[in-house]
Design a protein around this nucleic acid. Structure first.
Lengths: 205, 205
DNA sequence: TTGTTTACATACAAAGTTGTATGTATATTA
DNA sequence: TAATATACATACAACTTTGTATGTAAACAA
């Protein structure tokens, strides 16, 4: 059989993405060849090149499958107009992201690839910029929530919402990094929620 | 001239390391060939292979030149038995690391390579483990400092020193990451000290 | 039912990369 | 001062990887 149904073609495409994720994770993005991905997906390089024009495009598809839903989820949990407890809302947003990592191994693996199995140079450097600008968006939304908390007199500290949101972003960034790298669940994966609560409660009056 | 003096040989070795740092930074570790490094250092691959058996060893030398002094410096600043102000000592340690990044472009570039231009697979995965275990050491020392601060009644919160030190480590880890990636100095590089002070003061009674 | 497009597989050419083997002139040593 | 080890440069063989070009049988459209 040479030509597949549209449905089967889509399945093949997804098999290639899954194979790429697996091989990227074990061998790193740069050291992975299209041949290795094809072999893992039990197709030939012909199939891979038909669906994706090169490795960068394949990496992009792999990433978007995980990142786009996650961004939507983040936006949702940050946009809720829960005027009662803006600080708690920040905490819920952080927890929701950890939940997303806990719930989906694809998400975990993709994060691990993006953080320690990938070099952000040439065509991939734009991916890093996207990630950073997305972080900026989140930081600004968190700043608004801290602003609301301040006007409601819920903050313990006198720090500006800008500084507080940067601090929370630093905490969050560090947490995601350490969480992903904590493969044996010894240090951060099992304490993530406690650490989030601690971080939040330090700011609550 | 074919054979150089010992002194000149050492200069050549350093030139190769410097060249590798430059090329790693612009093209990523995996995509960099020995030939490219040699060209940048204005020697041939023969010289590179004479000084380093392969790219991993070269990367290791490049890393150690920056990391080992930094670890020493960290240990020094954390080991001072300054019983008066353990919390301030933590802050000073964090600031000292930022200073090290500000003071040395080699350090900055090496950090950038290790964080976004490098894939931790195969022989390099041990480097990531070393980094993580070093982080663990630092976290434990910070925990001891928080312990001392607690017994001296200097802490504002009721959180355990263990949680506090993990939180500080998360903050620190996030700060280093964002600092290094903040190439245009727009967000974190110029506010690092403020963020550190804020982090510390949140904990001080 | 026939033509056309699709979804791949196969084949090929070109270039890059690695490690090593060998050459060689000069430091260094004894 | 002769022998040897050093600090490279040059040359070579083997392998990998890439993109594309071509082949092909089946799905789909008309």
């Amino acid at each position: 059989m040479v030509r597949q149904t549209k449905e089967n073609a889509e399945i093949t495409r997804q098999r290639i993405i899954d194979a790429a994720r697996k091989v990227f994770l074990s061998r790193g993005v740069s050291r992975t060849s299209m041949e290795q991905i094809a072999a893992e997906a039990r197709v030939t390089r012909g199939a891979v090149y038909w669906h994706f024009s090169n490795k960068t495009e394949l990496f992009g598809a792999l990433r978007e499958q995980v990142i786009l839903p996650l961004i939507d989820r983040m936006d949702d949990s940050l946009l809720i107009e829960n005027n009662d407890d803006p600080i708690g809302q920040i905490g819920k947003f952080l927890s929701a992201t950890i939940d997303a990592l806990n719930d989906s191994s694809d998400t975990r693996q993709t994060f691990e690839i993006m953080m320690v199995k990938c070099e952000y140079v040439d065509d991939l450097s734009v991916v890093l910029e996207q990630t950073l600008s997305n972080c900026e968006r989140i930081t600004k939304k968190i700043e608004q929530l801290y602003e609301r908390a301040k006007t409601k007199g819920q903050l313990k500290t006198i720090d500006s919402p800008a500084i507080l949101s940067m601090d929370t972003h630093l905490f969050f960034s560090g947490l995601i990094h350490l969480w992903v790298k904590d493969l044996d669940h010894k240090h951060y994966r099992n304490q993530a929620k406690d650490l989030i609560n601690n971080h939040i409660n330090l700011r609550r009056k």
